[in-house]
Design a protein around this nucleic acid. Sequence first.
DNA 1: GCTCCTCTGTTGCTTATCCAACAAAAATCG
DNA 2: CGATTTTTGTTGGATAAGCAACAGAGGAGC
Lengths: 195, 195
Amino acid sequence: MLINALPEEKLDPRVKRTRQLLEEAFSELIQEKDFQSISIQDITVRAGINRATFYAHFPDKYALLDYKIRQDFRAEIEKRTLSACHFSGENLRVLIFAVCEFVGTTNHQCKSPRGKFEPFMEAQVKGQVKDLLLTWLGQMEINSRVSPEIAATAASWAIYGLAQYWNWEKERIALEEFVEQILPLVEAHLQLSRV
Amino acid sequence: MLINALPEEKLDPRVKRTRQLLEEAFSELIQEKDFQSISIQDITVRAGINRATFYAHFPDKYALLDYKIRQDFRAEIEKRTLSACHFSGENLRVLIFAVCEFVGTTNHQCKSPRGKFEPFMEAQVKGQVKDLLLTWLGQMEINSRVSPEIAATAASWAIYGLAQYWNWEKERIALEEFVEQILPLVEAHLQLSRV
DNA sequence: GCTCCTCTGTTGCTTATCCAACAAAAATCG
DNA sequence: CGATTTTTGTTGGATAAGCAACAGAGGAGC
């Protein structure tokens, strides 16, 4: 049994079930106590899954955290139907909005100190944002001095960084306003790789 | 893999999971459509369980219906902490109350015509009521002309019959009042087997 | 009557999960 | 610090669940 990350579709029903149960149990626990103090036993007992089975899916609890964040962010993207979209200023705005809110709520509903799992969130979110942007750019005529890779990388880092910045602020301006401000900035990254 | 009915406790987690999923799926379906028109495929697809696995647990959908009713009525008894009780007028009243309500709500939340699965409910409920009464009687000093078996049988039939009668009435009196009326009747059955 | 289709049980084989046991790492306590 | 307990990964063998295929029963429509 492998941990094949991306194609979550045609999967053995047992595998789907097991992962979902583990994820749900983990979700509950992460809201109750600090991430560090959650043992693998805690998770498997609550999920009703054998401990050995856990290791058949994830090497450790960090991998499960990673998996969960990926799933959550994916769901967020799906919910806003961004994955099936094309590039546009409006869609970009929605994307930035989604990232800001995701970082905020995820940070908020976890009992752990921020520094402990923000790195995981950062990696996942940046990665997926970059992939999404690449898809968008790939659908367009490209003729530029900057490769899509470079542009998407820069934009994804910028978006995440700004989302984190906004969420850390003590006195935050309205999210709508904030996004309005940074939208042209991010757009510039991408425009450079367009015709 | 066997269908060992009674000891639901120390059971393979996989078995517990599978049965619960089947039961949940069946619960949903029974509220949506007629029992006859529910196929085993419907159930297994909704539950995310392989069809062959169904047959490893139940010979047919009637057995699942039976199982579900048993589980539900058990839960009802547990909820009212009757299973851990002794015989008393008050507990008997609660038991009759429970049967009346159970018959009513179960009949109500199923789309099927009454005649189709009431026999199943009847068998299950009467059986469990009888078992419970036997337990109660067994805890007491017995010295009578009537064996506990006979007394419990009579009482369980009477209770179920009256519960059904009450639920079929067009103009029903308050359940409390009804139970009050029949309590002495049922009690008489049981008293005959006591000291 | 006939065909077409769905549902039903059942089968052999594959795969995922369970379980008990283990040694080693890590945490806890005095 | 050492001693005890918990947690961690890992293993081999047992068992449940998945899957594809099958023949047969029943229904719908022609």
